[in-house]
């Protein structure tokens, strides 16, 4: 296959950026999108140009590193896939493909297609955990978890933290990411003691990072490589309302973070 790429190039966080055109030639339709990028980069290197920086690691859709806006779709046109799982057979020969970084204020561009997603780490640090210091746990089977709850928790816990939800959201909101973690932990009996404190802290951090608010366009659900549902956002809001209705003492009582 032969393709034309229009790729965002930006030398550093403060540098100005622009879209630059490249040709990708003789690409196998069986190659993954990132393998196509490898080929382009090898050619750039040998021509003495700087290759295109992009985040990637596991290349099997689980680490959440890859993060490209491909032709106006987060992670490309296919649903339920990360960029690394996108294969060139999904494109027409001769196509022009736009490749851009996630465009969210809370994810500043580091270089070319790489962005800084540490905002997500800080949202987790604000409360996306169960306080359980090593060594104090009771026998695992003492906590019964209904299969339905466990399955639902797993659906949300599948989040890979790639940031596609915020990238796809017309409002630049990371509600789906935040709600997925809140839902994962709130489904489980172990997550109850800190449940309401968690939702308040995580939402506050989400806002402090500069993400926008959710208006339920639903773009995030279709962009999510793990197909996490916007139902999680309803659950987050529900918990948020309960938390608001509770006394402050009750919320704080859950854990010591």
């Amino acid at each position: 296959m032969n393709l034309t790429l229009r790729v965002w190039r930006q030398a550093g966080p403060k540098a100005p950026g622009k879209m630059v055109e490249y040709k990708a030639t003789e690409i196998s339709p069986e190659a993954s999108f990132l393998e196509m990028m490898d080929v382009v980069n090898d050619e750039l290197t040998l021509k003495g140009e700087e290759p295109i920086a992009f985040d990637h690691d596991c290349r099997e859709g689980i680490c959440g590193s890859c993060s490209m806006m491909i032709d106006g779709h987060a992670h490309g046109p296919n649903q339920g896939t990360a960029t690394c799982q996108l294969h060139m057979r999904s494109f027409e020969d001769g196509a022009t493909i736009f490749v851009e970084p996630w465009r969210v204020r809370a994810f500043p561009v580091v270089k070319d297609l790489c962005v800084d997603r540490s905002a997500f780490d800080r949202i987790i640090a604000a409360g996306g955990f169960i306080t359980a210091a090593t060594g104090g746990a009771q026998d695992a089977n003492n906590v019964l978890v209904p299969k339905v709850a466990s399955d639902l928790a797993m659906d949300s816990a599948a989040c890979i933290g790639c940031g596609a939800c915020a990238a796809a959201c017309p409002n630049g909101s990371a509600s789906l990411f935040t709600a997925a973690k809140i839902t994962h932990l709130a489904q489980l009996p172990q997550g109850q003691p800190e449940r309401y404190r968690r939702v308040v802290e995580m939402v506050a951090q989400h806002d402090a990072e500069g993400f926008g608010g959710c208006t339920l366009h639903g773009e995030c659900q279709l962009a999510c490589p793990k197909e996490i549902s916007i139902d999680t956002i309803s659950r987050m809001n529900r918990d948020y309302m309960v938390a608001a209705a509770m006394s402050q003492e009750e919320k704080v009582g859950g854990g010591t973070g």
Binding site: L144, K147, S150
Partner: peptide
């Protein structure tokens, strides 16, 4: 055996039987 206990306490959603056991 302690690892499984620790991970469950942290909220790792291990697969469950219908009765709620692991």
């Amino acid at each position: 055996v302690n690892i499984i206990d620790q991970c469950v306490a942290q909220g790792v959603p291990f697969a469950r039987e219908y009765g709620g056991l692991l």
